[in-house]
Design a protein around this nucleic acid. Structure first.
Lengths: 220, 220
DNA sequence: ACAATTTTTTAGTTTTGTCTAAAATTTATT
DNA sequence: AATAAATTTTAGACAAAACTAAAAAATTGT
């Protein structure tokens, strides 16, 4: 597989909503910052290799073979992201560009050993699940803390309110994107939530809880 | 710089004996398993970018700019080799192919952080020196243990005698390629040498000492 | 239903890096 | 020094992956 082919497969996978839904030529072109005609050419090539199902004017979908290729690239991407953050102290938001290059390195042994070195992580620094060698992975959902039951655990991936005041509050309480939180207790009386962080547990008001998104990985 | 350009620069550097000596078109073609005509084409391109000095029929040499590019690729290659051996438990002889891919990843930050993570190593697992960010590096020489004075230190990189009996002896004494040894004492009487290894110090006969090569890095 | 618009494909080029075959230059031999 | 041999370059072509412009098919609006 060439680098370019891998990028197409990955894009088709993402646009098809992690599914085998049919994707439009134009959508691929826009996503990859290329022209629709280039997409048609490549899609024909991928179809020859039976990585995608393609009928003229009807869009493309990944074949099972293509889906497995996509998952193997995503596995590599996410493992490298964990490496960059956990081992090299990259910050949460710097890793994507570098991982986009590293994901194309071809060596099964390398990925196996990297996985072991990282302690077989289940999710990447953004909270997204890491597929295993066979392409099996747990789906994840993005939910507000206020929508979650006691015991849930996830990675903080976003805010609803991005006012300076709110961000200041997060900073003061050592809450940062990429941190993992667990919901310990929900107070019936005022809806405040106690969550555990790396630096101990804190209580946040209902208002805060309705402004913080966690990425939750379903249990297997 | 494209992947292919980087490979040419690296090959020219190696063929010019880590120097700026002029290299023949045919030699490059043979090394890169390509045709002389392809080499001529690429060399013209590198000359346009003033990475090499080139005059028709007179061979190529790296310019100062080209030499720095070569050293930066070698730096990356060797740092990744250290990573693969020290952190991922690759064996000494498996790392080259993977490092050939990793050396092309483009990110200065990545290499800085990798260097720090590895503890700023001076040599790779083969005993070859790692250039610093500015392309400065210590030259290394390959010598028999019997040729070295007390106090020398180096990485075991080869054997003279590859008989089964000799290899068995090495195995029994836990001497492996890639290990670092220091010469502690040389016995005047019989020329036997005491060396320190990871698992303690051992004494080896003169005969053994004339069959083991160490890669020695000059002191700065 | 049919014209207008949008989407997708085709046809013909371009660029990068390679190749083959032939020409030019250098090196070696006698 | 002249010719043979080896090396290197040129010229022309090709495959991959992109592009532009134009044609074809599908979708939308009335």
């Amino acid at each position: 597989m060439t680098l370019s082919e891998e990028d197409y497969i990955k894009t088709i996978y993402h646009l098809s909503d992690f599914n085998s839904k049919s994707v439009a030529t134009n959508a691929i072109a826009e996503q990859m910052k290329t022209k629709p005609s280039s997409v048609t050419d490549m899609v024909k090539k991928l179809s020859e290799k039976s990585l995608v199902n393609y009928k003229k004017y009807q869009g493309v979908s990944l074949s099972e073979k293509g889906r497995l290729v996509a998952l193997s690239i995503i596995r590599k991407h996410r493992l490298w992201e964990v490496f960059l953050v956990d081992k090299l102290n990259f910050s949460w938001d710097e890793v994507h560009v570098v991982a986009e290059q590293l994901e194309h390195i071809k060596s099964d042994t390398l990925i196996d050993k990297l996985d072991a070195h990282l302690g077989y992580p289940k999710v990447d620094p953004h909270g997204d699940p890491i597929p295993n060698k066979d392409g099996v992975f747990t789906k994840s959902v993005k939910k507000l803390i206020s929508e979650l039951p006691v015991g849930s655990q996830g990675v903080c991936v976003g805010v609803n309110d991005s006012s300076a005041a709110f961000l200041k509050f997060l900073d003061k309480n050592k809450i940062a994107l990429g941190d993992t939180f667990k919901i310990l207790e929900i107070e019936e009386f005022d809806g405040s939530v106690t969550i555990s962080t790396r630096s101990g547990s804190i209580s946040i008001s209902k208002q805060i809880a309705t402004n913080l998104f966690l990425e939750i990985v379903d249990e297997e």
